[in-house]
Design a protein around this nucleic acid. Structure first.
Length: 474
RNA sequence: GGUCCCAUCGUCUAGCGGUCUAGGAUAUCGGCCUCUCACGCCGAAGACACGGGUUCGAGUCCCGUUGGGACUACCA
């Protein structure tokens, strides 16, 4: 007997950018659907017209695409599905599972405050519940929920969860402006879109019994629930903007690779033995709701940084060169020879944790005139290396094997003849060629730069040293 | 306040009653490699929140305490 096709969903509300936490629940839903050869649907929950923006919707879609989380259906917009909600509300009204409530918001607010100050539950008191009222201007529709018994469900990550129905009040299904509330819209959408697996943040566990009540009032089968723990900031409170960058796009712009972010997000709250690194296909193969942890976790950039460095090292240099272009442009470096960028990337791979770091570290390759790092200039570009600089400059300009091997040979000959150590001239040359005291290996750098550039840069350094000398002489 | 959820190194986590003198990763520190910085390799330090049970035996099961988080809207 073929099992039912798994249908998962990701329902962001377009009131802000896609953040790390949302991306992770999207990832889990996507992984589960892909693994079960099911479908993944994207739904935009924009019933809160005031706070929803098109810009946020675009940013969310862009984030999903960047992460490579492709959806099979949608995006559906709740704002365009009001007719559907309307018919379901009517259905509930017709069967007596819902009723019209005329209580004004002011009265409700006041009662809630009273109860709270008395230490009682601030829930709706059911004034209109059995009055058999009809619709009226300003009235809402409420669910007539059971006041006795318990609502219990099996959660795939948390286990059995059970709440006394007396804790739940008659929640509003339709607002006075006729729009559906979140709870109604979610349930109706999941029913009509065929969603049978709900994976979401555990800030929704308390909402689940309320939503189950709606399913029951409608006589519809319940989906499978899996509530994954929240992501916290370093201070162990819910991750938010004040913890720094939380938007997916911000990580893209800081130079992270999507695979690194995905890997980090997957490992936050989910594990597979001692394995730390996972390709997308491995994640699809190995993911399981059962091995999602129950405890909330702190989002840690250190680990992401390390993963990103690893993915950079593992990536093809040519591809990285393409991804690096916007970061080089940010530094004012345009129209670069793609071949030279690729070779530069090759030398920068083991020493870059982000694309941004890589661009900064590689920028010297593409600058016509270098500005020397202050400390390196003072310490290494000195008169006492002039002689060696000049000698090496001449040998290099006559070199006809400008490969790493050829250069190593040229240098070892020179060192042997003069009896000096490489250490004596390496740093001065490094500063001359790169402007910095830390860089890829000297010979690698020279190969990428090419003979003409190397000679030109050494000449410039020699001139620079002479100029400093003259300055001092005066 | 009430309800629900959670609790292993700084952080992410392995552990599903005996194999735990608690493993991995990251961060930190030390060493090796070395033309610098990285990478890589080797090593060090670092955790079962607390208290009761259950059991021959508990990080692992139960209860309580403490601490965290979520929800408690005509927001999602």
């Amino acid at each position: 007997m073929p099992a039912e096709t798994v249908v998962t969903r990701f329902p962001p509300s377009p009131t802000g950018y896609l953040h790390i936490g949302g991306a992770r629940t999207a990832l889990f839903n996507w992984l589960y659907a892909r693994q079960k050869r099911g479908r993944f649907v994207l739904r935009i929950e924009d019933t809160d017209v005031r706070r929803s923006t098109e810009e946020a919707t675009r940013a969310i879609l862009e984030s999903m695409e960047w992460l490579g989380l492709d959806w099979d259906e949608g995006p559906f917009f709740q704002s365009r599905r009001y007719d559907i909600y309307k018919s379901f509300i009517k259905r509930l009204l017709d069967t007596g599972a819902a009723y019209h409530c005329h209580c004004s918001q002011e009265v409700l607010d006041r009662k809630r405050e009273e109860n709270r100050s008395l230490g009682l539950k601030p829930k709706y008191d059911g004034t209109c519940r059995d009055l058999g009222l009809g619709p009226a201007p300003g009235s809402v529709v409420r669910l007539k929920s059971p006041s006795t018994g318990r609502t219990t469900f099996q959660d795939a990550v948390k286990g059995l969860i059970s709440v006394d129905n007396s804790e739940l009040d008659d929640l509003v299904l339709r607002r006075s402006d006729q729009s559906p509330t979140y709870h109604l819209a979610v349930v109706v959408d999941d029913i009509t879109l065929g969603v049978n697996t709900v994976i979401r943040g555990d800030d929704h566990v308390n909402n689940t019994p309320r939503q189950i009540l709606i399913y029951q009032a409608l006589g519809e089968p319940l989906p499978k629930y899996a509530h994954v723990p929240m992501i916290l900031g370093p201070d162990r409170t819910r991750l938010s903007k004040r913890h720094g960058a939380t938007s997916v796009l911000a990580y893209r712009d800081m130079g992270y690779l999507p695979q690194a972010l995905l890997n980090a997000l997957a490992r936050l709250g989910w594990s597979y033995g001692d394995q730390e690194k996972f390709t997308k296909d491995e994640l699809i193969e190995k993911f399981s709701l059962e091995s999602v942890g129950r405890a909330a976790g702190v989002f840690n950039t250190e680990k992401l940084l390390d993963l990103n460095a690893w993915y950079i090292r593992e990536s093809d240099s040519r591809e990285l060169a393409g991804l690096l272009a916007p970061f080089l442009e940010e530094l004012g470096l345009n129209n670069l020879d793609p071949d030279r960028v690729t070779r530069a990337v090759d030398t920068m791979k083991p020493r870059s944790r982000t694309l941004r770091e890589m661009a900064e570290g590689a920028s010297f390759y593409f600058q016509d005139t270098l500005s020397y790092e202050e400390k390196g200039d003072r310490k290494f570009l000195r008169q006492n290396v002039l002689e060696h600089m000049e000698a090496l400059r001449n040998r290099l300009s006559g070199c006809n094997d400008f490969s790493e091997k050829g250069l190593e040979g040229l240098f070892s000959n020179y060192l042997e003849e003069t009896g000096i150590k490489l250490g004596k001239i390496a740093q001065p040359l490094r500063v001359a060629l790169t402007g910095k005291t830390a860089s890829p290996g000297l010979f690698e750098v020279m190969v990428v730069l090419g003979k003409a550039d190397v000679v030109r840069r050494i000449d410039a350094a020699i001139q620079h040293i002479r100029a400093k000398e003259d300055e001092q002489a005066r």
